[in-house]
Amino acid sequence: MQNVIVYVQHKNGATPKVTFEMATLARKLADQLGGKAHALVVGAGSSQLADTLKTYPLDVVHVNDDAHVDGFLLDPVIDYLDAAARAIGSSLVLVANTLGGKDVAGRLVARLGAGVVADATDFKIEGGKVEAVMPKMGGAAITTAAFKAGDYGVATIRPNAFAAQAGGAGATVQPIEKPAGKSYAVVVEKDVEEGTGELALEEAPVVVAGGRGLGGPDPFENMLKPLAAELGGAVGASRAAADAGWVPYSLQIGQTGKTVSPSLYIAVGISGAIQHKVGMRSSGTIVSINKDAAAPIAEFSDLTVVGDAFAIVPELTKLVAASKA
């Protein structure tokens, strides 16, 4: 493996921060491997996004505003990536470890006959071999895996694990041809975005997350949101809260939701099930508020306050607000 290709997941040009983390990482890896750093961005809004991407330390950004990419599920993207990978030659493809990213990674494994490392939080290059470090089993194990010889590899990248840093000489933006002679079977009939316009959970420096202990949607709106706003952060939730319909699933943190690692994570009325822990364990400082001293969340919190969230949170919001006045 010599070159690095970043697959840019986006919607109408809006992309999560992990894209820029991967663009920054791609440069580092490409330099160590003695190859080039590429990015592929396809679908409506790509050209506009490419203008931002080229300010990151990439060599080439391959672009096509092809609307087919948005009209059909997954397959057009795979054809573009396949074509790009074959044209570029021996390469490691970086894909965000998101719901959509996993699908892309899986199809590429078979399309390119490639190995995959998943949810990588660090890389080492040893004698030209790429090694990835990945937390597994809810953080109970840290695994290191290496790609064996082979032209292609696929790595899914954990959001927030790598730094994003613009810079470099400015990448060349280059159109990529639409793969010819393809027809697609899975039609996207409707595409709905939820919870937009607010600070993205994965990007927030502070996350205030609520669980079943909050008992309903109102405390998320009237209690957690004001605290998050004072701290300059975003509101998140446990699966139990999302399942209950109190918040949209886009706010869910954990194995089957988002992975976050803010500098400060405040868990309110969350017990700390292993599937929740997986998504927030790498946060800088973890504070929990729980009325049960025996809740598992205390085992991985830096500070646990045993008490009633409804009494504590509003007071805390006031203290934070006052400290800024």
Binding site: L73, D191, V192, E193, E194, S250
Partner: peptide
């Protein structure tokens, strides 16, 4: 999806 939901036909 990562940002909401979709209706698709396969």
């Amino acid at each position: 999806t990562d940002t909401g939901y979709q209706l698709v036909k396969a």
